[in-house]
Design a protein around this nucleic acid. Structure first.
Lengths: 196, 196
DNA sequence: CCTACCGATCGGTAGG
DNA sequence: CCTACCGATCGGTAGG
């Protein structure tokens, strides 16, 4: 009767986190139950609490892990001295890259952050607002240097961030379009427009 | 002791529907309880069932009401003989108009349709796919007539539909930007691109 | 990691 | 439209 180990393994915790992201993505945070998560990870619901302290903690780790990656990338890009156009392109491509490589996490972070508890909810929203402001600054710089049209920078930021999320809808339909072509089309549309 | 009427008033039903849309938008479908809805409409939870048959029915009416409006507009536009550019502009502007005039309904329909029950879930998804295909056909026509760049039409459709949803983020922050300028900026960015 | 269990809350019904 | 209530289910805990 070989019994599983009782030690709290970081591996096991990681597995739980990944399964949770998948369930949250498919069913939403509220509609996902700890019993579903337990079943997927092959243990009883009560046993999950040996690895985590609450359901919300799972959501929290997903959201802040994603936020950290975006912040780190932007910080690195800001140090760069390329022009506003190249910076915006790099940002668009990084968002697409994140969506493609960490689909569940990004999807959940985008939709379910509302269920974070305080003080994390406020912290998360502040980080997002900061991120948007820094993107707006890049666009403003592009306008000042004559690279971009004189649109309102915040409108441009939110349009880009929203447009990039269209990738979320591609992931599910496995059409025969390479992710590279999708990314190229997106960058072109956003920077050059749809019209010829 | 004047007692409220017991007749099932269509007005009362409409009020419930509107309050429900507001709660669904703010808290999400699952996180909204019938007791919250009852409190907002000034009655007991049990009394709501004199006007509606289930919580999901409320969601259903919201989602299909929005879908009907979009379908009706597209049908009307397809009969028009304007060029692909003008059609796409009209579609973008109509989406913005819907977001501005029926914010709660559109927001909920966009995010919570997953909680529809069968057979309505399948019906809703089929309608949406149809809608996207018809938009893609317009874009394909624009490409064929040399109006549009040779992007993949479905990529363009999903990009537009996503980009237009950025309005969702504007509604909440009452910045001093007129909705007309936001709409103009959005149309320009999507058709002409951000770059000068 | 499991068994046993709990308090809270949910959508909805019965009956008036 | 209300009072009273129910079966189901939830996140989480106690104790081993």
């Amino acid at each position: 009767m070989a019994r599983p180990k009782q030690t709290t393994s970081p591996n096991r915790r990681q597995q739980i986190l990944e399964q949770a992201a998948g369930l949250f993505k498919t069913n939403g945070f509220n509609a996902t139950t700890m019993r579903q998560l337990a079943e997927q990870t092959g243990m009883e619901a009560a046993s999950l609490y040996n690895h985590i302290s609450s359901k919300e903690e799972l959501l929290r780790e997903i959201c802040f892990s994603v936020a950290n990656d975006f912040n780190a990338h932007l910080l690195q890009l800001e140090a760069d001295d390329s022009c506003a156009s190249r910076k915006m392109e790099a940002i668009i491509r990084f968002h697409i890259h994140m969506l493609l490589t960490r689909y569940n996490d990004v999807y959940v972070s985008n939709r379910d952050w509302k269920h974070l508890k305080e003080p994390w909810l406020t912290n998360f929203l502040n980080q997002r607002k900061q991120y948007e402001n820094r993107l707006a600054a890049i666009i403003q710089h592009g306008i000042d240097t004559g690279k971009f049209k004189a649109v309102h920078p915040h409108v441009a930021v939110l349009t880009m961030l929203s447009a990039v999320r269209s990738i979320e809808y591609w992931q599910r339909s496995k059409k025969a379009i390479s992710s590279k072509q999708i990314a190229d089309d997106l960058v072109m549309m956003l920077l050059k427009g749809l019209e010829q």
